[in-house]
Design a protein around this nucleic acid. Structure first.
Lengths: 214, 214
DNA sequence: ATATGTGAATTGATTCACAGCG
DNA sequence: CGCTGTGAATCAATTCACATAT
């Protein structure tokens, strides 16, 4: 599963693979809810998620009991519980570091609001980009990052700077009190234990494909 | 099961986590080579990859013996071997399905050539996009997909269509003989066993962050 | 002297089987 | 009865320890 294959030992006993699967279950349940389906069994959910019913029940059991024996799960209940488990019931404030092509594309992404994420700010080091506006988001100077993060209570940083600046930008984010980093650069960044990093690296996926189809 | 003196096929399956790590080692080795570093020990590589030396040696051992006892690994040799293992010594032809914002951004991505990937074609279903050109790549009609894939010997498809069209587009790719799919849509697609799919889903990563920092 | 390569031990995750409850 | 919830069993991956090669 997409995840952190080199992650350090988790203090929590919940497998990170379980968290990745919960995200998948959530997406499927949202689709079911959109189609006004109100009941689902672990067996049917497993078919949709391309997993096993055992696994779904085990994954959920880490967090409580959400079904009805003999009947299955009710979609709205399980949906609500998954959102709660994954921390999606509150708004998360996000800053984009690096307003190149990728940063601009993210600023234009229309669905953050639907998912309770709020783009609080966008910063760049390049003076030619500062004060420009992308999809209603004004680029600010990276020097103001610490102030921005503290004042606007930013939780998460999207790291879209070039590889060679990634660690420096991550350090600035952490220094300013960020809690999570979505790292779009194809590099490993070093962070303290209390900061969570997820990497989005399509070139890595592409190379894995090459291995499997060669 | 009928008795079988051939025992069970000894094709010890290589963990997919190992493949993911090999991609990481490759990236680090490329950086080392760029800095003219010619020798590396599993211990030092482990530090750079935020993993363990045991694991690196075990990962490599699935494919052969590449180091020198007492000395370590020579960077150019290990680099060459990793490229060979991952199937990166030949050119891979790619088609982009869906020339919306993401497809356009991918067409503009400058580094595919460096990695031996070649953008052979871009297709879309929208007549207003067909015949437009993005970064030198002309958009063609999705109806011609099968012909394009066969004639240009396309190996890999970048799936950048909306979620609701993802399965249909994947079916068309498979029908035309594609071998691998890089799925940028946040949906699970169903494919035959001989097709390899990798998913790139930044929203999933974002939700995992929410879980860990909440 | 030093760092790899690898069987054995250990740890972790998945699968199973059935008890528990509607 | 049907389907969930869960301890036990199985399977897989990681870590260890040291024999081995230079």
């Amino acid at each position: 599963m997409a995840s952190n294959y080199l992650a350090k030992s988790n203090t929590s006993e919940i497998p990170s693979a379980t968290i990745s699967r919960l995200v998948i279950y959530l997406r499927i349940l949202e689709e079911l809810a959109n189609n006004d389906i109100r009941e689902i069994s672990s067996e049917k959910l497993a078919t949709l998620a391309q997993g096993s019913a055992f696994q779904i029940r085990k994954d959920l059991a880490y967090f409580g009991t959400f079904g009805t024996r003999g009947a299955g799960y009710t979609v709205p209940t399980l949906l609500r519980e998954l959102r709660r488990i994954l921390g999606l019931t509150r708004q998360w404030n996000v800053v984009i570091i690096g307003m190149g092509r990728l940063g601009q594309a993210l600023a234009d992404y229309p669905r953050f609001v639907h998912y309770n994420y709020h783009l609080s700010a966008a910063v760049d080091i390049n003076p030619e980009l500062v004060n420009k506006e992308f999809s209603g988001l004004k680029v600010e100077d990276i020097g103001d990052l610490s102030k921005i993060i503290k004042e606007r209570m930013v939780d998460i940083g999207f790291l879209t700077v070039p590889q060679k600046s990634a660690q420096e930008a991550a350090d600035a984010l952490i220094q300013a009190g960020i809690k999570g980093i979505l790292n779009f650069s194809p590099s490993i960044i070093t962070v303290p234990d209390n900061i969570h990093v997820e990497t989005v690296d399509f070139l890595a996926g592409l190379k894995r494909i090459s291995y499997y189809i060669k």
